[in-house]
């Protein structure tokens, strides 16, 4: 299936303003702060990725490896991962810390999107 819309992007400190803050004025951006050494992150990531595809552009999943987002995580006081934040109009409107099963992530999306 050809993708009409980009549903998933990679972000870092340099492009955070453009790809998250600015872009969230048009489409909700869900940032997933994760790291290689964090197993709960590795469990949550595929769930978010498949939901991003399923929701077909209702939100864009922005994956932020904590190695590439040190300034951003410090600015937003991210102290625990996985850390998921939903941005609308440049502001955080919802967030959660820790891995969740698919149904709970779906519920969180439907409630906040």
């Amino acid at each position: 299936m050809a993708k009409n819309k980009e549903t998933q992007i990679e972000i870092n400190d340099e492009n955070f303003r453009e790809k998250v803050l600015e872009a969230s004025k048009n489409t909700p951006i869900i940032v997933d702060f994760w790291a290689e050494w964090c197993m709960p992150c590795l469990m949550l990531s595929p769930i978010l990725e498949s939901l991003a595809e399923e929701y077909q552009g209702k939100f864009i999943l922005a994956k932020g490896n904590t190695d590439d987002t040190k300034e951003t995580t410090s600015k937003y006081k991210v102290q625990g991962i996985p850390n998921v934040k939903m941005f609308k109009n440049g502001k955080i409107v919802a967030e959660f810390v820790g891995s969740l099963p698919e149904d709970s992530v779906r519920e969180w999306l439907d409630k906040n999107l």
């Binding site: 964090c38 197993m39 991210v78 102290q79 625990g80 991962i81 810390v97």
Partner: peptide, 12 residues
Amino acid sequence: LGKGIHYCATCD
């Protein structure tokens, strides 16, 4: 939780 309280030192 995740704001000063942690259960996974490896992660955080």
